[in-house]
Design a binder for these strands. Sequence first.
DNA 1: GAAGATATGTGAATCGTTTCACAACAACGA
DNA 2: TCGTTGTTGTGAAACGATTCACATATCTTC
Lengths: 217, 217
Amino acid sequence: MPMKHDIAQRLSQYRSVLYKLKALGFVRVFSDNLGDALEISPALVRKDFSTFSLTGNKRGGYRIDDLLDKLNRLLGKDKVQRIIIVGCGKIGQALMSYSGFTREGIQVVAGFDSNAAVIAPQASIPILDIKELKTYVKREGIRIAIVAVPDNSASHVFDLLRAAEIKGILNFAPVPLKGAEGCVVRNINIGLELENLFYLVRFAGKVPPQPAARPAG
Amino acid sequence: MPMKHDIAQRLSQYRSVLYKLKALGFVRVFSDNLGDALEISPALVRKDFSTFSLTGNKRGGYRIDDLLDKLNRLLGKDKVQRIIIVGCGKIGQALMSYSGFTREGIQVVAGFDSNAAVIAPQASIPILDIKELKTYVKREGIRIAIVAVPDNSASHVFDLLRAAEIKGILNFAPVPLKGAEGCVVRNINIGLELENLFYLVRFAGKVPPQPAARPAG
DNA sequence: GAAGATATGTGAATCGTTTCACAACAACGA
DNA sequence: TCGTTGTTGTGAAACGATTCACATATCTTC
């Protein structure tokens, strides 16, 4: 299953930059501008656009509105995306009220948890018992879930989501879940990202591969 | 600035898997095992290890304890890493009490915010006024910060952190910050990750680059 | 309406990463 | 002690992603 990964990410970034430019009153962009904004080469911008038949004008660059229309369609931004959050601890609840989502056309329609203390079916975003997960997902046609549970329940929750035929998971649990037939998984491990940062900071500038000394000899 | 990015990430993943294997009673591993665990080829595991002079035994694979020792040293896991969190809204506060950190030897030593209502210098993890950021960072020798502020304060906070000579930033604000001289930045944009997921789910199986029709002709 | 300037679109070259393939070597058994 | 087996370590090949380079199209100006 060889699927381009970075390019889709860039598509979203182009979109975001284009909205900012539009707000500033611009009508057209050049591949140079977008390249600068994303810190990539103009050639790559053009290649990306070419891949998705986003065409421009040989002299005047690309029409921003035109690009945005096509990108929005491509990224499914023409309709509100409805998601659920499994695990309503601190992080789960923080994400439930994250204002960045509504701005992006993403709607958290429900939370799920096994802890009776947090269940609140009448809240503006209802928090339901995890037992209702499968029924809810099927009835409401939910395709994407965020997982924000502790590491020891991660794989159990993963099974439940697979049984409910969820199509995509954004996993914040510190246990990497493996994608499977019909279900794409994106793992975000905050601890791991920090570790990575420690490493990069430690070796910034210096040569990383070369751990100090040879065994002598 | 050509710095390997994925390999450091993998180093942390090796470490995590090795601890699990060790807990299961294993003493040695083969590149095959690690390859399976990370869903990469055994050859890549060996190349990675070779890059960092993590050597094994031609017949009996690698000694887990040996690998862990060296990986821990390489990843700076031999001492506790002290970090701060800038922006103590819902997400910031959720991260402050995130139990995954302590398990990984990461200690959140303080939070910073501009909102007087959340400031609490006496809390077990003190939340201080953002005005004290620079002094604190310099006095305590903090190198890494997590940014969890709204989009409109992100770039201001970024400037403050740069002025305090922070060396690495994990940015959760939905505005990409650009790394700069002496400061590594890793952006995590949750909305963007979700968008990416929508895209991948939509085109799972199908050919992604090929938006329907050609212009005719 | 022709000449000049400027930006796209894309095949070919380049670059970095991953995989292949196999020599070198350690453990084990006879 | 000597073959057999199984695994590492690594140069070379393959692959994928990015950049180069330039032909091509459009706009502008005179």
